[in-house]
Amino acid sequence: MSEPSVCHKCNEVIQQRIITALGKTWHPEHFACKDCLLPITEATFNIQAGEPVCSDCFVKLYSGTCHGCKQPILERTIKAMEQSWHEECFVCNGPCKKPLVGTSFYERDGHPYCRTDFEQLFAARCAGCTLPITDNAIVALNAKWHRDCFKCKKCATPITASTFAVEENKPLCTECSG
């Protein structure tokens, strides 16, 4: 004969309906939220410190608020940039809106960006080709240049010497300036 079930809350034998949860048995009226103390009647509940918590108390007391949509987070939480996010809300703030979970990202003004959008939106632009500069730049003529774009305006040879001439704010190699 099996051992009678005892209620985790009142330690009395359970004669009628039984609730089994968290590895314990309960009278239905004693399976209650640890915070509001009301019986939990929903099919789903949350757990805090090993005790059951109703959905209302969980949202009020334990769930974070998503930095993206400002709604409670009831499932997996993404922690990034000192904020909490729903997995589906942690996306690039640029035009692509790609998910950023599990990838590297860039931060600007409290918003996450994928590398491509970050470079397109915020990287310095080359004075020669106007594309973003994502590595070392040459700074000359009050502008930034890709190494390959800093070339003679006449012969299009890259200027690698530390001296060059200037014509209409464009570089000239020493051969073309003479």
Score class of each variant (00 low, 15 high):
Met81Lys: 04
Glu82Phe: 07
Gln83Leu: 08
Ser84Gly: 06
His86Asn: 06
Glu87Asn: 05
Glu87Cys: 07
Cys89Glu: 02
Phe90Gly: 10
Phe90Leu: 08
Val91Tyr: 02
Val91Cys: 11
Cys92Trp: 02
Cys92Gly: 06
Cys92Ile: 12
Asn93Arg: 07
Gly94Arg: 00
Pro95Met: 02
Pro95Ala: 05
Cys96Ser: 14
Cys96Met: 09
Lys97Tyr: 01
Lys98Arg: 15
Lys98Phe: 03
Lys98Met: 10
Pro99Gly: 15
Val101Phe: 04
Val101Leu: 12
Gly102Ala: 11
Gly102Thr: 08
Ser104Cys: 06
Ser104Tyr: 04
Arg108Leu: 09
Gly110Met: 13
Pro112Trp: 11
Tyr113Ser: 08
Tyr113Arg: 12
Cys114Leu: 01
Arg115Lys: 15
Arg115Cys: 03
Thr116Val: 13
Thr116Cys: 03
Thr116Ser: 04
Asp117Lys: 08
Phe118Arg: 03
Phe118Asn: 07
Glu119Trp: 05
Glu119Phe: 12
Glu119His: 09
Gln120Met: 12
Gln120Trp: 04
Leu121Cys: 01
Phe122Trp: 04
Ala123Leu: 11
Ala123Arg: 03
Ala124Pro: 02
Ala124Arg: 13
Cys126Ile: 10
Cys126Trp: 06
Ala127Glu: 06
Gly128Ile: 07
Gly128Leu: 09
Cys129Phe: 01
Cys129His: 08
Cys129Ile: 10
Cys129Val: 10
Leu131Gln: 14
Leu131His: 12
Ile133Asn: 04
Ile133Cys: 08
Ile133Leu: 08
Thr134Arg: 05
Thr134Asp: 06
Asp135Ala: 14
Ala137Leu: 09
Val139Phe: 09
Val139Arg: 11
Leu141Phe: 10
Asn142Ser: 15
Asn142Pro: 10
Asn142Tyr: 03
Asn142Val: 05
Ala143Phe: 03
Lys144Val: 12
His146Arg: 09
His146Lys: 09
Arg147Gly: 01
Arg147Tyr: 04
Asp148Trp: 03
Cys149Gln: 01
Phe150Ala: 02
Lys151Glu: 00
Lys151Thr: 00
Lys151Cys: 00
Cys152Arg: 03
Cys152Phe: 10
Cys152Thr: 07
Cys152Gly: 11
Lys153Ser: 10
Lys153Pro: 00
Cys155Arg: 03
Cys155Phe: 06
Ala156Leu: 12
Ala156Arg: 13
Thr157Glu: 08
Thr157Asn: 06
Thr157Tyr: 00
Pro158Ser: 05
Ile159Lys: 07
Ile159Arg: 00
Ile159Thr: 04
Thr160Cys: 05
Thr160Pro: 00
Thr160Ile: 14
Ala161Tyr: 02
Ser162Glu: 04
Ser162Trp: 00
Thr163Ile: 02
Thr163His: 05
